[in-house]
Design a protein around this nucleic acid. Structure first.
Lengths: 230, 230
DNA sequence: TTGCTGACTACTGTCTACAATCTACAACCG
DNA sequence: CGGTTGTAGATTGTAGACAGTAGTCAGCAA
């Protein structure tokens, strides 16, 4: 069981607030305000900011403050591009293994099926993305996992935004089933094709659904950042 | 110019000591000791540990302490595997762009040629790896950059270890030239082949040269970690 | 009216001190 | 003689306070 300190719970809390959108992009995170709101002191909060900075959920600007990272269409596209590459690499690695166990993958799908719609939006995202996470884990490369994990939090922001919109259709379970059966039968190239197509579809849904305001926010964010460099 | 605070300089200093091997794998980093040695207080040092934890140079274990991350043959292999995938993806992205500028890549090669052997081992590594870094940068995907950057510090440890050995031959410049000319002529598939071969050769050199002791250290590290979880 | 300069405010950066917890060693009991 | 438990030392976790800097607003001059 992980030891949960003040820093770690602050990380979780802020992460959740950013992913759910309660803390809007480019919002400034005042150390004093938040430490008071959370009832903690500033040093552990600063450690939390450093950790969240690694997840690219916030941007830590020395002597200026910490800001919620911006969002943009382009950013979302880039995440999906890298994600697709990471997961395809996982399949490549799997294809070279003797007899990888696909039990965790199958388990992820049944869990997703059972819990679908019964959880909060954010937990729903985590359950739904578990298939992809376990795919990476099965490859057994800790650096691949690290890269994938770094994407997860920011990906969650976009995904949760999509899931919050009316009429969003998260019925991609059968696509996952197809990918899994390809893997189990050793049809790795086909699995990669299905995976790529699945991610591309998801990305397109997300792109169509995304409000313009977020792209605008991202652009403002960039402007501010440029100003701080000069 | 970046503002350099106490935390940032602590990060640089510790990072350099780990990469050069002055701080051996699995060494425990006592907060009090190091803060006294550096003449700083513990809170910024803890922030530095969190940042170094993101780079996987140290392992921050709550209530136990911070340890220099272990090294192993397997770990080195995994880094190279992911690195190869990231850089090949960069080439894929480049191949879809209209007219990418290869000037930064060419510049990296001339710099490497000029400065080769005139720098410290660690700076030598950074100059030599600049070609690869700029390849990623040219693709223009900030998440790809982020993944690559996370690998860099740990890669540096292995690479510096290799460069420190007698008889190491860092004469891979011509291989880079070949890759670059393939890229400039639009022969992307060929560029990826050369890149993969180049990385594979480098990995093999490193693997042959690596002392057993480091793998052993990595194993001890894992044992300790398992013990702490139970 | 606009631009510049000064001071003030508020925030971040850092430090010192205290509390909580872990580890190691020793003593005691089986 | 070995194992277990308790205590002491050390080390990490957190809080609160102070110093330095950046941003802002107001006043004055052009």
């Amino acid at each position: 069981m992980d030891i949960i300190g003040v820093t770690e719970s602050a990380v979780r809390r802020i992460r959740e607030e950013i992913i759910t959108g309660r803390l809007a992009p480019t919002t400034r995170l005042h150390e004093t305000d938040i430490s008071e709101r959370f009832g903690i002191s500033r040093p552990p909060l600063r450690e939390a900011f450093r950790l969240l900075g690694n997840e690219k959920l916030v941007e830590f600007v020395p002597r200026r403050g910490t800001f919620v990272a911006g969002m943009s269409l382009e950013d979302g596209d880039q995440i999906y591009r890298v994600r697709q590459m990471l997961e395809c690499t996982a399949i490549d690695i799997l294809s070279q293994q003797d007899a990888p166990s696909f039990e965790p993958l199958r388990g992820a799908l049944t869990e997703a099926q059972e819990l679908s719609g019964k959880l909060s939006v954010i937990d729903n995202f985590y359950v739904m993305s578990r298939f992809h996470v376990r795919l990476i884990e099965t490859a057994g490369n800790c650096w691949l996992m690290s890269c994938h994990q770094n994407l997860q939090s920011c990906l969650a922001r976009y995904q949760v935004m999509y899931l919050n919109m009316p009429g969003s259709t998260p019925r991609s379970l059968d696509e996952h089933v197809t990918i899994l059966s390809c893997l189990e039968n050793g049809r790795h190239a086909e699995a990669k094709q299905h995976l790529t197509a699945h991610l591309e579809r998801t990305r397109q849904c997300l792109r169509d659904a995304m409000p313009f305001g977020s792209a605008e926010a991202g652009r403002r964010e960039n402007k501010r950042r440029e100003g701080s460099q000069g």
